[in-house]
Design a protein around this nucleic acid. Structure first.
Lengths: 222, 222
DNA sequence: GAGCTGACTGGAACGCTGTTCCAGTCAGGA
DNA sequence: TCCTGACTGGAACAGCGTTCCAGTCAGCTC
């Protein structure tokens, strides 16, 4: 802390910003397990010890990286017309950001109510308010939406993450549907019956449908 | 694999069951980071190497432990009257199980659509069907519910987990509400305004309210 | 009973991790 | 010119999951 950077120090010196940027690149390239202080130091052409001068540790680094991604995602969301479509836009912004950076998902729930989550809550809350929800129900409505948004985004990202060689999505769904159809009839009657719907399954659309479902639920109590 | 236990072997020999049971105890006692093969071996009065004869590795162990908890939780859910209340009961069963064993949350999304998740999906799906949802919408309805249930349960558990000395819940909420009220007016108008609602906040009731919201949404499309 | 076999054990060792430590470096103020 | 202190980077440390392997011993075969 308290570093007040030497204004004209060694050119290309380390800084929290440079470290976080490199960490995001490394996480995107090599996944969660790819972020090690040695790899990060190598990418920045320095030693692992030097990093600790600028950041507190791995946890702090992950929080900073997550905040950066979420802030970027929410920043892209511009003012829209109705509260309903604004909520949709924010939700999709988070969903897409987590989808593009699966490691963000792990952080979003690991340290809940940090800056990133709070920003999402704030943005959603404003539009819940605009929706005309009575004050006493605003907290419930907003937190239900936020929980759903983060919960589903994280699970969606986790799902894609298992495919180490990112095979074709439709091919994967077909294989999974086939597995579902092989399940024991007595134990999994519903899953078996529904298996065929999995192939024409679109996570993003499904996610949005869930949002609509919740908004419909909120609207029905107005 | 293929072990066909010596029926009258050394009394008190190791077994996958004993190891999983000990792992669950260790996870409950010491948290996710508390489960190490050395600690587990010490608890079982053996060496860490011996464990690998019975289980494939840490991932496999965590999956087995998670399955055990979820199966136990769903097993406690008995046949109820209406589909609506059955969904509520299953949801609460999962919520409470994850709340009691926070480490389960980490697993539920880390390896999605493994046995544990599939069991929850199956159980929920059956009652969605009974609700009268038309077949083409059953997948969406069921997966929205499952995503919400797991998502919120995990986030709730993660929230409780940060309190290392598990301080009083209401005291914690008061402290958090105070922090919310300190936030920047320009950046967090909604969060600030809603802060007072946080103190009389009941995660479990909130969770259930979200379920109702989603069911209401499903019902409105019948 | 002797000898063998192989399921099973448990401790040492390997490569990796996050973190700490500290002898060095060097720009800018005295 | 010297000194100070912000900053570097590599070595070292403790602890992790996993592998390795020399041992043990119940139960079978002869």
């Amino acid at each position: 802390m308290a570093k007040a950077k030497r204004s004209s120090g060694r050119e290309e010196g380390l800084s929290p910003e440079r470290i976080v940027t490199a960490a995001i690149e490394l996480l995107d390239d090599a996944g969660e397990t790819g972020l090690t202080f040695r790899a990060l130091a190598a990418r920045l052409a320095t030693g692992s010890g030097a990093l600790y001068w600028h950041i507190g540790g791995k946890d702090e680094l992950l929080v900073a990286a997550t905040d950066a991604i979420v802030e970027r995602a929410l920043g892209d969301v511009r003012a829209t017309t109705t509260p309903r479509s604004a909520i949709r836009t924010i939700a999709l912004g988070v969903f897409d950001a987590v989808d593009a950076h699966p490691w963000v998902g792990a952080q979003l729930w690991r340290i809940p109510w940090e800056t990133a989550t709070r920003q999402i809550f704030e943005r959603i809350g404003r539009h819940v308010q605009a929706l005309g929800v009575r004050p006493s129900a605003q907290f419930t409505s907003a937190s239900t939406l936020v929980n759903y948004i983060i919960g589903v985004s994280v699970q969606n990202a986790a799902q894609g993450r298992v495919l180490d060689p990112p095979m074709d999505r439709t091919r994967y769904l077909e294989a999974e549907a086939a597995r579902w159809k092989e399940l024991d009839v007595a134990e999994y009657p519903f899953t078996r019956k529904i298996a065929s719907q999995l192939t024409k399954h679109d996570d993003r659309a499904e996610f949005l449908a869930g949002i609509e479902l919740i908004i419909a639920g909120i609207a029905s109590t107005l």
